[in-house]
Design a protein around this nucleic acid. Structure first.
Length: 475
RNA sequence: GGCGACAUAGCCAAGUGGUAAGGCCGAGGUCUGCAAAACCUUUAUCCCCAGUUCGACUCUGGGUGUCGCCUCCA
């Protein structure tokens, strides 16, 4: 099997990926807290991981992909109070919106989307285990994890407990033995959802759910754990502390930690707390989801990605180029021909595909990989031109090979999946006008032809005459 | 204050110890009744200083700048 290298946050270097079980890969990606609309910064890890898992699947791996919903949380409770809804209604609604957003970005569904509210027994069991082993202590119905008890605390984020103490800027709960201790179980306050537990009515702390869910669905040890780099500390650091303390071995939990960089606005992190964000839905009003997806993948996942309307436009222009090559490829494939004119094209495409896979295998370098997609697109366009405009005889067999390679790469990037839209009445009317113009042109009635073109232009319709007819699209 | 990342053409963005992928924009061209669209061609010596080396954008040290984490956050 192809050698895949991955940058591991834990070791701060690229490592050769060795699956725990041959031919299989287990992935746990931190999902969202469904308290409002997902913004495009939220979307980045999911687009990234969707691409990574597509790649693994293409390489022949059996992928197990788990992504949670933290549906029991302070923010959800707050929103539910504000909106006069139950926490469940808030979570369910936002999970629906989340799926709509991800569908638009061609993000395939994870195998399981566990929710905190469905994992309470496992969480309680884990908290109890931590208490039993002396890693957690109970105070007034709250349960805290004792960071000093876990000697590896800080290994993921690369800081020592002393560093953290020095930098502590938060008000410390007096009941904590160490300021860095964190809650694994919180006692219920009036008006909050709660579950019964050995420590009284309460709910899980923030980090424990991922430890419990990954254990439940992927086992004590699994291959990848991913998320945004802002989760490295404290979230993932705490997950490691919980999981490895619980199972009693440093080998437990994720082997490779993969963190994506942020999306920024004017070079500043996009975040809900800063309020400088665009929701995925905002973007979808102006651009197809594939454009946003492509925009994200044109930059390496670990680099920061500065968002602006202009850059999204650039990405769209690039994607259109690819789409156009695809249309040309479709048009050519409909032809027959047994000439031997596309041998070089097929070879170049296969070679580009190999380079594409090599790029992906080097820490999922989608930015480099995409360049090979453009290379093949160019070759296809050139060949299209030769066949359609210069009368070169068509080579169906070799062209088919090139086209397959092109589509194979596109499938990993997750483009060319736009759903066919149903023709509206307006579309039919436009089609009719386009037909009329074609007829007018045949009769060299340029006045009428131009009149129709202008008419459509005024309605925001752009015509594209080609050798095979006229395509049109909304500007 | 502690820890870390990054600095490549007008814009975005890969990358390698041996003279820089790709995209956007711009320019030129092909096609077209004209146009649009499409397509083709074309555009850099890699923040500054010093060092290592036959040779550095790529390694080391220093500087400057930007950003992030340390608090909820993808």
């Amino acid at each position: 099997m192809r050698t895949i290298q991955v940058y591991n946050t834990l070791t701060r270097k690229k490592e050769v990926f060795k699956p725990i079980e041959d031919g299989k890969v287990g992935i746990y990606v931190c999902g969202v807290t469904p308290y409002n609309d997902p913004h495009i910064g939220n979307a980045r890890p999911f687009v990234t991981w969707d691409t990574i898992r597509r790649f693994f699947a293409k390489c022949g791996y059996e992928v197990h992909y788990i992504q949670n919903f933290t549906d029991v949380d302070d923010k959800i409770i707050r929103v539910s109070h504000e909106q006069g809804k139950t926490w469940k209604e808030v979570a369910d609604h936002n999970i629906d919106v989340y799926f709509q957003s991800m569908d638009a970005l061609n993000v395939r569904r994870a195998d399981v989307y566990p929710r905190v509210s469905d994992t309470i027994p496992e969480i309680i069991e884990m908290v109890q285990g931590l208490v039993d082993k002396g890693y957690a202590y109970v105070v007034d119905g709250d349960v805290f994890y004792s960071v000093e008890k876990f000697k590896g605390y800080g290994k993921l984020s690369g800081r020592s407990l002393d560093d953290m103490m020095a930098g502590a800027r938060v008000e410390v709960d007096e009941r904590k033995q160490n300021p860095m201790d964190f809650a694994v179980w919180k006692s219920a306050k009036p008006g909050e959802p709660f579950w019964e537990s050995p420590w009284g009515n309460g709910r899980p702390g923030w980090h424990i759910e991922c430890s419990a869910m990954s254990l439940k669905y992927l086992g004590r040890t699994f291959d990848f754990h991913g998320g945004g780099s802002d989760l490295i500390f404290p979230h993932h650091e705490n997950e490691i502390a919980q999981s490895q303390a619980f199972c009693g071995s440093e080998d437990c939990f994720a082997h490779y930690w993969v963190h994506n960089g942020f999306i920024t606005i004017h070079e500043e992190k996009m975040s809900k707390s800063l309020g400088n964000f665009f929701t995925v839905a905002d973007i979808l009003k102006k651009y197809p989801g594939e454009v946003l997806r492509f925009f994200i993948l044109q930059t390496h996942y670990r680099s920061p990605l500065d968002f602006s309307d202009e850059r999204l436009k650039d990405a769209q222009a690039g994607l259109m180029r690819l789409e156009n090559a695809r249309r040309n490829a479709e048009e050519l494939s409909a032809k027959d021909g047994a000439a031997d004119t596309a041998k070089a094209l097929a070879e170049a495409a296969l070679s580009a595909k190999e380079s594409f896979y090599t790029a992906m295998a080097d820490d999922f370098n989608t930015a480099l990989a995409v360049s090979y997609l453009f290379a093949v697109a160019k070759d296809i366009n050139v060949y299209y031109n030769e066949v359609v405009n210069q009368g070169t005889a068509f080579d169906k067999e070799n062209f088919g090979k090139a086209k397959d390679a092109f589509y194979d790469m596109a499938e990993i990037i997750g483009i060319f999946e736009a759903k066919a839209e149903e023709k509206s009445d307006e579309d039919a009317e436009i089609d009719a006008l386009v037909e009329e113009r074609l007829a007018a042109r045949k009769e060299k009635n340029w006045a009428r032809a131009d009149e129709i073109r202008d008419l459509l232009k005024a309605r925001g319709i752009v015509l594209k005459d080609t050798a095979e007819g006229t395509r049109w699209e909304r500007a």
